[in-house]
Nucleic acid binder design. Structure first.
Length: 468
RNA sequence: AGCGAGGUGGAGCAGUCUGGAGUGCUCGUCGGGCCCAUAACCCGGAGGUCGCGUGGUUCAAAUCCCGCCCUCGCUACCA
């Protein structure tokens, strides 16, 4: 029987422009999904948007639209970005989807009945200019960081989730599931903070209505995290999808690891639902060594990312340049260097020279000794352990071996049919392994090299001229 | 301040968990080869006291332990 594999990205905030950060998580999820498809697993890959919340309601009002209409208009931006990046997700969920709203409502009731939700008072510092609450530490000398006006301390009725009650169950859960928080370096960070104690969490608001109403008090709507996190679960309550829960991995940016590693399992334990297998937090990209900042224009959006060297090169670069989980630096120069040096000079060149030689000569079936030098087992292990950079490094080492092989065997003189066969088969294997990373190019290579008559093809990766 | 991560030839990394000659990779640089191929490919060289203490453990430390310096990240209702 086929194994199941369920991978998710966070649900993104629809008012954003899809940028390198969104793309990174989503590409990684796509790679994992494709990888498991190759292995023959039954795969479910979920992404989507978080449509609720006060900020959206306000932005919609400004635009003169209903919140629903406003978000409807924003969704294509994300769907198009994923299409351009060759992301093959199975479902695009929105927190406004009816099935999701129904599940959240049911779970809220369940957790309420259990006694884990109580009515309390939320205190915060309110800035009229922002029409938003700040925590004390956000304020600068008691003033709003944006408007520099004095923030008012306000109290508001709110429902709270008894997070404090789950400190011990969470610590127990982490102990019993040592790989739940990944990579390792995030684990101790989270555990130490949980050990310091947990405060109950406000999960409702009564001063706006763009959200899911609490089933036991319709004056309140569910506040962001409770609503948003459950998307991962509600997507599996559809007919035929039940078997996918619990998720095999939630891919997230390290900024939201606290919510996924603490709130999320606490909610699930309370609701009596199984917890996901793993939450993997990847690192952040800086841009030319500077922190990405929207206000200073230091952000790479998806269109820019693709325009530099194409989709496959962008996908390749993001996963090759930095260990998944560490921070990385993005620059146009670094991307072009990888594109030229690795995809064009090594892989592209190999494809071209071998296809040209085969076109002019013939191949003859033989035992493939060359292929033994490809460390398939090692590469498999790397990908299964989210070490994409190392997997790619090993695949490209084998490409080097192939280029050496052509050279050492002086193929253009000997025209050895058996050696050409070995190369052909090896290239097909390389294409298979690279498919999750660079699907478009991989499919072209496979088509070219499995044809009856192999011909010298188009250049796959054109070199890009670059002057720093 | 607390917690976490990192400091390896000119640049970027791997190697550290499970100690074994400073090993490896990419870029750059110098020299050679080849001409099938995208001025691509292949071979070889130069270049590092592996942040510091000339600290501890050990036959042996980039790797384990201690101290210090520097850089970066996280510190909760903010998606």
């Amino acid at each position: 029987m086929a194994k199941k594999f369920y991978v998710t990205t966070p649900i993104y905030y629809p008012n954003d422009i899809p940028h390198i950060g969104h793309a990174y998580t989503t590409i990684a999820a796509d790679i994992l999904a494709r990888w498991h498809k190759i292995k023959g697993d039954e795969v479910f890959f979920l992404t989507g948007t978080d449509d609720h919340g006060k900020k959206i309601a306000q932005a919609a009002e400004k635009a003169g639209k209903t919140p629903k209409r406003f978000t409807d208009d924003l969704i294509p931006k994300f769907k198009n970005a994923w299409k351009k990046l060759n992301i093959e997700y199975d479902r695009f969920i929105r927190t406004t989807d009816k099935d999701h709203e129904k599940i959240v409502s049911e779970v809220l009731q369940k957790v309420y009945d259990k006694g884990d939700i109580y009515k309390g008072v939320y205190e915060g510092f309110y800035c009229t200019g922002c029409e938003a609450y700040y925590t004390e530490k956000d304020l600068v000398d008691g003033k709003c960081p944006v408007h520099k006006t004095k923030a008012e301390k306000l109290k508001e009725e709110s429902y709270f989730f008894k997070l404090s009650k789950y400190q011990k169950p969470l610590l127990k859960f982490y102990k019993e599931n040592p790989d739940f928080i990944s990579p390792k370096k995030r684990k101790q960070e989270i555990i130490n903070r949980v050990k310091e104690g947990l405060r109950d969490l406000s999960i409702s608001r009564a001063n706006f209505d763009w959200g899911i109403p609490l089933p036991f008090d319709k004056k309140h709507v569910c506040y962001v995290w409770f609503d948003a996190l459950f998307n991962y679960y509600s997507a599996t309550r559809q007919k035929g999808k039940e078997k996918f829960w619990p998720a095999d991995v939630h891919l997230i940016g390290k900024d939201i690891s606290w919510f996924h590693c603490v709130y999320w399992p606490a909610f699930l334990i309370s609701a009596g639902i199984k917890c996901p297998e793993k939450v993997f937090s990847h690192g952040w990209w800086t841009f030319d060594k500077e922190k990405i900042s929207k206000s200073r224009g230091r952000v790479i959006n998806v269109d820019e990312l693709i325009s530099i060297a194409g989709v496959d090169s962008a996908r390749y670069f993001l996963l090759r340049a930095t260990p998944f989980g560490d921070d990385g630096d993005f620059s146009k120069e670094a991307l072009i260097k990888r594109h030229n040096g690795e995809l064009a000079n090594k892989l592209g060149n190999l494809i071209l020279r071998v296809s040209a030689l085969i076109e002019k000569n013939r191949i003859e079936k033989t035992e493939n000794k060359l292929l033994r030098k490809l460390k398939v087992k090692q590469i498999t292990e790397f990908i299964d352990n989210y070490q994409f950079d190392k997997a790619l490094s090993d695949i490209f080492s084998f490409i080097d071996v192939c280029n050496e092989y052509v050279q050492n065997k002086k193929l253009w003189e000997t025209k050895d049919k058996k050696v050409l066969f070995e190369l052909k088969e090896s290239i097909l294997k390389i294409a298979d392994l690279l498919w999750p990373f660079i699907p478009e190019s991989s499919e072209k290579i496979k088509k070219q090299f499995s044809a009856k008559k192999i011909k010298k093809g188009e250049i796959l990766f054109k070199k890009i001229k670059w002057k720093p």
